[in-house]
Amino acid sequence: MARVIVDVMLKPEILDAQGQAIARALPRLGFSGVSAVRQGKRFEVELDGPADEAALSDIRKMAETLLANTVIEDYRVTVEE
């Protein structure tokens, strides 16, 4: 049983209007010193078996085809210890 995390973020060159709105809201709430915020998605994928190379290869395929739109987003796969 393993849990694999897929983090999906907009590519750096893509304008993140939602992240900007969050960054603008922070000073109003009294938080200072934040220069930028970017918003992304986190997927927690529970596996029936271990997070071996075959399973990770499948998860990368999932990320490529569904979890991320690679036209605008990058993804990162990590195994949760």
Binding site: A17, Q18, A21, N69, I72
Partner: peptide, 17 residues
């Protein structure tokens, strides 16, 4: 059509939200 890669590019949240 964009998600299916039948057309290039993507559509995102309006800049004005």
């Amino acid at each position: 059509l964009c998600e299916a890669h039948l057309l290039p590019g993507a559509l995102m949240r309006n800049a004005g939200l």
